[in-house]
């Protein structure tokens, strides 16, 4: 697989503060890559290095296989977490200015802006000043400006902050469409539910070090612990059924709904026990549900960070 971005042993120190130590990442093309980590972990520093706002002390970053250089700036779009617009400048002038700074010609920028303003239904904002707009409205404009020059790599740092749920959804759909069109996307956030929804790959940075990275589904698999949720409809007395199960397996929790005669249990299994328990259960009761619990990205995040802190 081709990689849009490869970082090799990147380190960065500010005075006495180590912002990144020996980070190596490979970001595949045409995917959404989640860059996760607690506040102050070094995510922003890493993103700034990709944008050539700062430079690494050691290590290299390859963009499309070539060392990062100024001509790549036009191929990258960046929506920073700390973002804003000139308050007293008109929306249209401002969007044109920022688009031209990314290398678009004035006429091309105007054409594309018109398309996007119509698409997001904000065409009548063109002549307004930013100070007349709400925060969410300004965010929409920032989003458009970020993607307008059709970069190969988009970097979103907390893109949904400041949006109401409806607009957040519109932006999420736009991000997914961009990915469909072949754009690679780095997505930095604390909101784990959007990581689950969007990211195929993640990297977890903690205290300037990378502590986890890979395909999200693979990571989840490796974090599975063979706990299964089972729901059965029992005919006889639930107590005896539960006793039989508990004799043979390690039941973690159980809950019985007497009216519906519905018993829910979660059970810890050893490897390769699934087929055995399934056949046993099917003889004793009607199985409604049998599923393996898969850890959420949130669980993985908290667990990994805590483990790391406890190890020290």
């Amino acid at each position: 697989m081709d990689h849009i971005l490869v970082a090799k042993n990147v380190s960065k120190t500010y005075g006495d503060h180590k912002a990144l130590s020996n980070i190596s990442l490979e970001i595949p093309e045409n995917c959404i890559y989640g860059l996760l980590g607690p506040n102050g972990a070094g995510k922003t520093t890493f993103i700034r290095i990709i944008n050539q706002i700062t430079y690494p002390d050691t290590g290299t970053v390859l963009f499309n296989g070539k060392p990062l250089s100024p001509e790549h700036i036009a191929l990258i779009g960046y929506l920073p977490e700390e973002r804003g617009l000139y308050k007293s400048m008109r929306v249209g002038d401002q969007a044109l200015y920022l688009a031209q700074l990314k290398g678009l010609s004035r006429s091309e920028a105007k054409k594309r802006l018109k398309y996007w303003f119509d698409k997001l239904e904000i065409g009548d904002w063109w002549g307004k000043k930013i100070q007349e707009l709400s925060k969410g409205m300004a965010q929409k404009i920032q989003f458009i400006v970020t993607i307008l020059h059709e970069p190969k790599l988009l970097i979103f740092d907390e893109p949904f902050s400041g949006f109401d749920p409806i607009n957040a959804n519109i932006i999420k759909d736009e991000i997914l469409q961009l990915k469909e069109k072949g754009t690679s996307i780095i997505f930095s956030t604390h909101r784990m539910e959007s990581v689950e929804e969007l990211c195929e790959y993640i990297a977890l940075i903690h205290k300037s070090e990378k502590i986890l990275d890979g395909k999200l589904s693979d990571i989840k698999k490796s974090y599975k612990n063979n706990i299964f949720n089972v729901g059965v409809e029992v005919s006889e007395e639930s107590g005896s059924f539960l006793d039989t199960i508990q004799e043979r397996y390690q039941v973690l929790t159980s809950n019985f709904d007497a009216q519906e005669r519905q018993l829910d249990i979660s059970v810890q299994l050893a490897d390769n026990e699934t087929s055995v328990i399934l056949s046993e259960l099917s003889q004793m009761a009607k199985i409604n549900r049998f599923e393996e619990t898969i850890p959420s990205a949130n669980d993985i995040f908290i667990q990994t960070v805590n483990n790391r802190d406890n190890d020290r």
Partner: peptide, 18 residues
């Protein structure tokens, strides 16, 4: 200072050198 407080600065310096 205006560019700093309005937080546009990082948007701009991702396109041009400081």
């Amino acid at each position: 200072i205006e560019e700093k407080t309005s937080r546009i600065i990082e948007v701009i310096i991702s396109s041009v050198k400081p």
